[in-house]
């Protein structure tokens, strides 16, 4: 996998700066007497405007890496630099501000606040972000403007996930981290969600990383990282990306 950083990402689409530079990152978890090495010396570079898919079986380390990139967790060894600043050295307070200003998260189980409407769930973020878009605009982008006054319990799974995406992008994040965003959805709904993610990646030039078990999804990525045993076992650039509407599973 050496050389991935040097290869960069399709320079043809314009001058792209690295967003994350990951060097020698390992993560050890200790539960009782058992020591688990979730990541074992990972190196990678992620670029502005790039859509990356992280593939691999359960326990291969992709979620651990995503959590470290999102400032939810810290590496045991190695460094992660976000636009040149060393993330692994951030204090708790700095990590909070980092998440608030730069990162958008999308989870498998949406994690919407049930007591807030779709619009309010998005406003939750725009109220504290530095240069947000209007919540209505974010919902517009995921095609949910007509249902913005509905509570989560009144929305379908796909709609809830699209609200979660709207919430993630409303702050105009530099990074969008998605952990199994289609995992709880049927294929048709999943494709709509991927369309939304893909569109935002293209329009806002957000570095987007999508974790999935679903191999079909890799076709929409600029690059695909395959994980095994805490390492990146393979990195592949897609010569020809397809749009989400063209894939199926």
């Amino acid at each position: 996998m050496d050389g991935a950083a040097a290869d960069g990402f399709d320079p043809a689409s314009g001058p792209h700066q690295p967003v994350f530079v990951i060097e020698g990152v390992s993560k050890l978890y200790r539960t009782g007497e058992v020591e688990v090495r979730a990541l074992n010396g990972v190196d990678a570079v992620l670029y502005e405007g790039e859509l990356t898919v992280l593939l691999g079986p359960s326990g291969s380390g992709k979620s651990t890496l995503l959590n470290i990139l999102g400032g939810l967790d810290k590496p045991s060894e190695g460094t992660v630099r976000f636009r040149g600043r060393e993330l692994s050295a951030f204090s708790e307070r700095q990590l909070t501000l980092y998440r608030r200003d730069h990162v958008g998260f999308v989870f498998q189980f949406y994690n919407l606040i049930p007591s807030l409407t779709a619009l309010e769930n998005v406003a939750l973020v725009t109220e504290i972000a530095r240069r947000p878009m209007k919540p209505e605009e974010a919902l517009e982008r995921v095609g949910l403007a007509p249902r913005m006054d509905h509570f989560p319990a009144q929305l379908s799974g796909g709609e809830q996930q699209r609200v979660a995406i709207a919430r993630a992008i409303a702050k105009r994040p530099e990074v969008l981290l998605c952990d199994e965003p289609t995992g709880a959805l049927d294929s048709q709904t999943g494709i709509r969600v991927l369309e939304a993610l893909s569109a935002i990646n293209a329009e806002l030039a957000t570095a987007t990383a999508i974790i999935t078990h679903n191999a079909a999804i890799q076709a929409i990525a600029h690059r695909v990282f395959t994980f095994a045993d805490g390492r990146i076992s393979e990195m592949r650039e897609n010569e020809s990306r397809v749009s989400p509407s063209e894939i199926s599973w």
């Binding site: 307070r93 909070t96 501000l97 980092y98 998440r99 608030r100 994690n111 939750l124 972000a129």
Partner: peptide
């Protein structure tokens, strides 16, 4: 979830 979204 709120903490992840960046609330202190």
């Amino acid at each position: 979830g709120l903490r992840v979204l960046g609330f202190t």
